[in-house]
Structures are given as structure tokens and as C-alpha cells.
Nucleic acid binder design. Structure first.
Lengths: 198, 198, 198, 198
DNA sequence: TATGAATGAGAATTCATTCAT
DNA sequence: AATGAATGAATTCTCATTCAT
């Protein structure tokens, strides 16, 4: 007898485990057996729920992005003014907590996968687009309310988003020149540079 | 009799082939046999020059960075004023030519490797540090000459560099929202925003 | 569901095959694929049960010694008087049957392995110690009962045991000067030389 | 221009190196490159003097036996009485010096090789036969002179020789139960047991 | 003579995937 | 539904041997 909820729960557990293993060992060294161990199941079970390793990874990336979206929505509370929202978004995405470090690692793996696999590119497009949109919304709203002064909100939203990605990479790669504090300071300085000071 | 130059040349050929394969297939799917085929040698020969796959890849990353450094030095001609230099650097790093696309793909793979392998992180530190320094030099010189107005050159140099990385990733991942032209426009807009307009 | 007995049985089959291959081709030329073929499994299965070739061989040596111990215990029946027991032991260890030839070949390979690998030395210590003890017991009991006359049972037990080893080597190496019959005659002559003639 | 003596000297150096490597790493793990390094030549040179690895090893075994024969002849001085000679032989073959340990290790490897390779068996036959003959000569002479009392000199010579082999194996394998001193004591006890005490 | 670069035929090992239970 | 034993294709790495110099 099919119990859809039980199936969904099992899938969720396995995807959670997959993201954990992707973060720990990387896409390249991920083995089904590690995912199974992490999830507390057997390799047979992983294959029972996911046809192939590729499908498992694609779903895992989607899963991680969904979680990230939920975290973002919690941050972007309607009451916050646009400038504060831009700052809050950067803070939320700072790779400071284990959860956000994990997310970043998974995204980095996704980008690499997207270089050669269009289906991974689509996953990135959907979720990354939403993320850029959230920043763009704040930038536009700020401009409309006279709190932000930029020649082109779209361009400055892209600056901010890509800057965060680039900084996060160096933080995660353990670069000597870019610490977590540097990342935060850099993001703040950018917002300061566009915010209208009364 | 040993002919050092022949040995060095063979190493160079194999590293060149390795970078090509890393770019084409990625770090994850790189096989020694592909490198050998690309270089026109046997797998045994690849192993004759490099003890292990890991060493081969580490050397290949270094090799690609060296090539990139040479390209950068050609761009940063002493005659150029700082603002023009910031623009020239972005143009030179735009993933528009096959060679620069290849470089970006290799760097992205390096970043991923650095997440778990400190020796890869060191390679990144050395060469990436030089790259950030080149941007910082231009930013500082611009500030001193009154051509650029930024509260903190270091922060704005980091913004610019990380922005380029983040934009390039999305371009290379084939993101719908960020085209090559968008990347270029975004970089130019950033320079415009810090350049002093007379 | 795990069926421990089936797992143990598979391990036994593979160890049995390994000893057979060690005897046929020697430690040096043993290939996992030969063991797999001999056991009727794939190489993957051999590795499923044994992590590495080294572990497989270590376990195989242990396995062969266990079998030899069982054969020895069958020989040393409690009813036999000590002198007869010394003779029975030599007879039992004579490399005359395929099974005992195989055992000797495996032991010889073990000794060679023990030269450089202490873990193999330990295997030898445990089982070889038991074998020397069995001979010593007979020697001592014979002395106590006045059936054997030796100045030092320990020394004479060591003589007997090492003599058998040295003789067996030459028999197995196909030496012209030492036939199976010579080995038997030599062992008997040694027992005769220490046995008290009434 | 062929200079036979130079050729012979080069061969000798390589064989010396081969025995050293056989003793250190064993027959199984011997690599031509190690032999070359030990001898101070290149692998190409090793192959220039010896057609194949197999031939190299066969010659190396012969070479080691020749050296052992020379050592033995130095020990068996004509002046020594037979009983003293038997003792001197055992002392000379005790694996106490690096040189004699090396010899034993090489012989053990030879025996293993002889199990499957008749040409190795022949090498063993020739040289081992001489060694048994030397012991037999002492045993016979002792009997004739009334210094040794054994029912059959041939049998007792075989006992002595094989006993030494078996003891040496355990000493070299690092057996807990058989030390170098035990080996010596056991050999002495055997000679004592056959020597006529006046 | 001597070299050592280059080869290529293996061999151990890994691991996604299958499938009988 | 879930398992985990079994597989075998794939891949790295080794090393004796060859051969141009």
C-alpha cells in the first residue's frame, strides 16, 4: 500500500543526507554508500527512491535551494525598510553558521555541475533568479522611496548579488586575504555607498 | 643523456592538455587517459611525469594561473591611467574568448578543490592574491590622483574583484539572467560609480 | 536480511580458493582475478569480503593453519604412546598428499612474508608455536615415562620440528638429494635415536 | 670494443645489487629500478646486461650461492677435526651477521621460486648438494675416526642440514620461540648428541 | 656502452547499479 | 518496502621492457 507521506518523508531524509555529504565530501567524491550511511539506510534503499546518482544530485540541489528560499523569506520581513533589507540579506547569506556554509558549498558544487549539465543550469536559473529578484525588489523599492540612489537598480542588484558570491567563494576556500569579517564589511560598504544619507 | 628542456617541454604539454580536459570535462570527470590522448602520449607517460592524478591537477592549476598572470601583465600597461586600467582588467577577464572561458572554468574547479584540499587553497591564495593586488593598486593610484573617489580602496577593490567572479560564474553556468554583455555592463557601471566625473 | 552463515560460508570459499591459488602460483604471482575464478565469483565479490589483497592473504594464512591444526589434533590421539605420537606427527606432516603439499607450500609463502611483514610473523608465531608445543609435549611425556632419553626435551623438540621443516622444503623444491622417502626415513631415524630401546 | 673484464665487473655489481634488493624487499617486490639504483646504474643498463628480470634473478641466486660457498670453504679448514668442523659450519651459517642474514633471505626466496620454476630448482640442487656434501664428509670422517657415532652418516647429515634450515627460517621470521641463541644451542646439542665422549 | 624517456599490458581497487529475498 | 550481496565496468597506477640517442 502506498503511503505517499511516508515516501515523501523518506525522500526528504535521503536528500538531506545527500546535501550533507555533498557539503562534506563534494560532488566529486560523493558515494551512494555515504549518503545511505548518513541517512541511516542501505544503498539499495537510496536507489529505491532515486533512479540514479545523477537524479539524486539534481533533486538534492533543488532541495537545498528550497531550504535557502525559506530562510530568505524569513529574513525579508515586510516591515523592514529596503536598505535594512539589503543589509539583512547579506547577513543572512554570510557563511557563518554551519547551515549556511553547507548551503554555499552545495551551491558552488551546483555551479560547477551547471558548466556541463544544462539540467543543473536550469535548477540554478530558477532559484538563483528568485534570489536576484529579491535583491532587485529591495533596490527598486529603495530607489522609489528615495532611500537608495543608483543609476540602474538592475545593474546594482547584480553587483551586490555577484559580489556576495565572489566573496563567499574566497571565504569558503579559506583565502588568506578575505575573512568572514571582510566579507561582511565589504557588503555593508556597498550598501552604504548606494544608500542615501540624510 | 638528460635533456632538461625536452623534459620541461613534455611537462608543459601534459599540463596544457590537463587544463584543456579540466575545462572540457571538469575536475570530477577528468581521466588520465583523456589527458594522455589530448597530449598525444600514453597514460604511462603522464604517470612518468606526474606521480599521481592529484599532483597533476595541482600543477595544472598552477600552470593555468601562471598563464593568466602573464595575460594580466600584458593588459596592465604602465601608460594606462588607473580608471582605464580597472576597465581593461575587467575586459581582459571577460569570459568571451575560448582561452578566457577555459581559464575561468579551471579556476572554478580550483575553488571547489580548495574547499577540501588546503594545498589547492594555497595555490589559490598565491595567485588570487596577486590578482586582487593588481586591482587594489589601480584603485589606490586612482584615489591618490583624484580620479577615483572611494572611502576605502581595499574594500572597493574587493568588491570589484569578487563581483567579477560572481558574474563570471553565472555567465559560465549559462544563467538566463546574466549574459556576457550584462557582465561587462555591470563591471563598467561599477567603475563609473567610483570614477570622479569632471 | 543478513544471513551470517551465508556470509561466513562465502568467506570460507574465498579463503579456500586463495590457499589453492597461493599453492599453485605462489604469493608473488597471485592475482585477485585467479582467486575469484577459483572460487567462482567476480573480483568485485572478493573485494566485497576482503578489503585488500593483503588482508585476504593474511586471512588465508590463518585459515590454512587452522585446517592444519585440526588435522594435527586428529593425529595426536590420546591413546598413542609418546614415541608413536612423534612418529605419527612426522607422518601426518609428510608432504605426500595434495592437501599436505598445499599446506607446506602455503606455510613456506607465509615464512617469506613474515620476513618483512610483522603481522604475518604474528600469524606464524601463534600457529607455529602450537605445533612446536605439541611436539614438546610428546617429548616431555616420553621422557617422564622413560620412553625417550634426551638431555633437554625443549632442544630436541626444536630439532625435530625444524628438521621436518628443512626436509620438507627440499622435498617440495624437488631437490635431487632428498626424496619423500628420505624425509620419512630421516624423521624416523631421529625418533629412533632418542627412543629408549628396551 | 669488448672488454670482457669490464663486462664481468659490471655484471657482478648488478648481481650484488640484486641480492641486496632481494634480501631487503624480497623477490616478490623486487623492481628493476631498485636494482639499478642500488647498483648506481639505470634500468636500461640492467637490461643491457641481463635479458630479463627472470634471468637476472636466476643469476643472482647463483651468485649468492657462490659467495656462500667461498665462505664455507674458508670455514672448513683442513686442520679442524670433524666434530669441530660440524660445529664451525653451524656457527658460520648462523644468521648473526648482516651478510649471513642476507644469504639466508636470498636462499629462502630461492626455495620459494624453486617450487614452481625447475630452473631455480636446479640452482638449488647444485649448490645445496655441495653444502650437504660438506656436512656429510665431516660426519663420515668423524665416524671413521671414531669421533662420531651414528647408525647412518647420510641420514644424520641430512638431519643436521635440514635442522639448520628450519631453525634459521624461524629466526629470520622473528619467531618468539626461537632466538639466535636457541638456534646455536640446538645445533650444538645435536652435535653433542652424536659426538663420542671419551 | 649506457641512458632514461616512453610505452602498454596488466592488476588492484572502487562503486553505481541490480536483484533475489 | 527495504536490504545488502554480488557484479563488472571503469580507472588509477605500476613496472618490465624497448629503443632512439
Amino acid at each position: 500500500m502506498a503511503r505517499p507521506s511516508a515516501v515523501a518523508e523518506r525522500r526528504r531524509e535521503i536528500l538531506e543526507a545527500t546535501c550533507e555529504v555533498v557539503s562534506e565530501r563534494g560532488f566529486r567524491d560523493l558515494r551512494i554508500v555515504d549518503v545511505a550511511k548518513e541517512a541511516g539506510y542501505s544503498t539499495g534503499t537510496v536507489h529505491y527512491y532515486f533512479d540514479s546518482k545523477e537524479e539524486l544530485l539534481r533533486e538534492a540541489f533543488r532541495f537545498e535551494y528550497e531550504k535557502s528560499r525559506i530562510r530568505r523569506e524569513a529574513v525579508v520581513s515586510p516591515g523592514l525598510d529596503p536598505v535594512a533589507r539589503l543589509r539583512a540579506l547579506a547577513d543572512a547569506y554570510l557563511p557563518s553558521s554551519p547551515a549556511s556554509v553547507r548551503s554555499w558549498r552545495v551551491w558552488m558544487e551546483l555551479w560547477i555541475s551547471a558548466l556541463r549539465d544544462p539540467s543543473m543550469g536550469q535548477v540554478n536559473d530558477v532559484y538563483y533568479g528568485e534570489w536576484r529578484q529579491a535583491v532587485l525588489d529591495a533596490m527598486r523599492e529603495g530607489q522609489e522611496k528615495g532611500l537608495i540612489e543608483v543609476p540602474d537598480p538592475q545593474l546594482f542588484a547584480n553587483m551586490y548579488v555577484s559580489m556576495m558570491d565572489g566573496l563567499a567563494i574566497q571565504v569558503l576556500a579559506g583565502a588568506e586575504g578575505i575573512s568572514l569579517a571582510d566579507m561582511q564589511a565589504t557588503c555593508r560598504a556597498f550598501v552604504d555607498s548606494v544608500a542615501v544619507t540624510s
